[in-house]
Computed example of a mutant assay.
Amino acid sequence: MKWIVVVVIAMLSAGCASPERYRETLQTWVGKPEADLVAEWGAPDTSYRADDGTRLLTYSRVRKYNAEGVILTGRCKTTFKVEQGKVTGFSFQGNECK
């Protein structure tokens, strides 16, 4: 049981820095063509096209970890905003965004 507590604390501690690194990685996509994003990330899990032509491409990831019989789940949902064929922004949420 003590080992599980150590693992959970380590995961939470590592997660403190991870979102910033993930944000920096996503920022490199801003200004790049949508086609390049899809070539690298694959087809999005969901997409939405607004009336003004703006597209939202969403990628979801779920990972499960087994820590001495306890199943831990990590999730990350990343959405890219695409306007006129170029990535113009992004957002993300979840404990597995790194």
Rank of each mutant, 00 (worst) to 15 (best):
G69S: 10
T25I: 03
P33L: 08
F92A: 05
T25Y: 04
T28V: 11
W41L: 11
K64T: 15
A10K: 10
R61P: 00
P19A: 05
R21F: 08
D45E: 06
S91M: 07
G53M: 04
L37F: 08
V8G: 04
K32Q: 15
A10P: 06
Y22F: 14
I9G: 13
F92H: 02
V82D: 00
T46W: 08
I9K: 04
C16Y: 15
E96D: 15
S47W: 01
A35K: 12
I4D: 10
E68S: 06
F80M: 01
S60V: 09
G85H: 05
M1T: 02
W29Y: 14
G15W: 13
F92D: 02
A39Y: 00
T78E: 01
D52H: 05
W3D: 06
V70S: 12
Y65R: 12
C97M: 03
P44M: 10
A50N: 09
R23D: 13
T78P: 05
C16R: 10
A35W: 04
T25W: 01
Q93L: 04
A35G: 11
E20V: 15
G31Y: 03
F92E: 07
R55S: 06
L56R: 06
K64P: 05
V62C: 06
A14V: 15
K98N: 14
R75A: 13
T58H: 08
E68W: 11
D36W: 00
Y22V: 03
L72K: 07
P44I: 05
R75Q: 15
G42A: 09
G74A: 15
Y48V: 00
A17H: 01
A35V: 13
L72Q: 12
W3P: 00
G89I: 03
S91K: 13
I71S: 15
G89D: 09
P44A: 07
K64V: 11
P44D: 04
V82P: 03
N95R: 07
S13T: 14
V30A: 05
I9S: 12
E34S: 02
F90L: 07
N66E: 13
G42D: 08
Q93W: 06
E20M: 12
A67W: 11
F92C: 06
R23K: 14
C76E: 11
G53P: 07
Y59F: 10
R21Q: 13
M11H: 08
S18T: 12
T88Y: 00
Y65V: 06
G15I: 04
V5W: 01
R75F: 12
V87G: 01
N66I: 03
W29V: 10
V38W: 00
W41A: 08
Y65S: 14
C16P: 00
K81P: 00
W3N: 01
A39P: 03
K77R: 14
S13P: 00
T28C: 08
T88S: 11
Y22S: 10
V6F: 11
W41D: 03
G15H: 13
Q27G: 07
P44G: 06
T28W: 02
V30C: 10
K98L: 07
R75V: 14
A10V: 12
L57G: 00
A35N: 12
F80A: 02
N95F: 10
V38P: 03
C76R: 12
V7M: 14
I4G: 01
E40M: 06
V82E: 00
G74I: 08
G74H: 10
V5T: 12
P33I: 06
L37T: 09
I71T: 15
T73K: 14
R23A: 13
T78D: 03
R21N: 09
G74R: 13
G31I: 09
